[in-house]
Deep mutational scan, measured.
Amino acid sequence: TYTWNTKEEAKQAFKELLKEKRVPSNASWEQAMKMIINDPRYSALAKLSEKKQAFNAYKVQTE
């Protein structure tokens, strides 16, 4: 089980997950979700809006 003390740690864990699963920077949210949804870190960020925000930040960083 994973635990995160801060929102920032949770966001980092979520981005690490995207990186580890090699989600391409041109992937849509739907494509990315299919690649990461079974990992416990997918739940790091509770709100869908937070997940999408972190995903978009990840995409910008990896382009």
Rank of each mutant, 00 (worst) to 15 (best):
T1G: 15
T1Y: 13
Y2C: 15
Y2P: 15
T3H: 13
W4Y: 12
W4Q: 07
W4I: 04
N5A: 15
N5W: 09
N5M: 09
N5Y: 13
N5E: 15
N5K: 12
N5G: 11
K7N: 07
K7W: 06
E8K: 07
E8N: 06
E9W: 03
E9D: 07
K11G: 09
K11R: 13
K11W: 15
K11P: 03
Q12N: 10
A13W: 03
F14H: 00
K15M: 15
K15E: 15
K15R: 14
E16K: 06
L17K: 00
L17C: 08
L17D: 00
L17G: 00
L18M: 06
L18N: 00
K19W: 15
K19L: 14
E20C: 06
E20F: 07
E20P: 00
K21M: 10
R22Y: 07
R22H: 11
V23I: 08
V23N: 01
P24K: 04
S25N: 10
S25E: 07
S28I: 07
S28C: 08
W29D: 01
W29V: 02
W29T: 01
W29Q: 00
E30T: 12
E30P: 12
E30M: 10
Q31W: 07
Q31N: 09
Q31P: 01
A32Q: 01
A32G: 05
M33W: 05
K34L: 12
K34I: 11
N38Q: 09
D39R: 00
D39P: 00
D39S: 02
R41K: 04
Y42V: 02
Y42H: 02
S43F: 14
A44N: 03
L45F: 05
A46M: 10
A46F: 07
A46P: 15
K47P: 07
E50G: 03
E50W: 07
E50I: 03
E50S: 05
K51R: 08
K52L: 12
K52V: 12
Q53T: 10
A54V: 09
A54G: 03
A54P: 01
F55E: 01
N56G: 08
N56P: 02
N56F: 12
A57L: 12
A57T: 11
A57C: 14
A57D: 14
Y58I: 03
K59V: 09
K59M: 06
K59L: 09
V60G: 08
T62D: 08
T62C: 14
E63V: 12
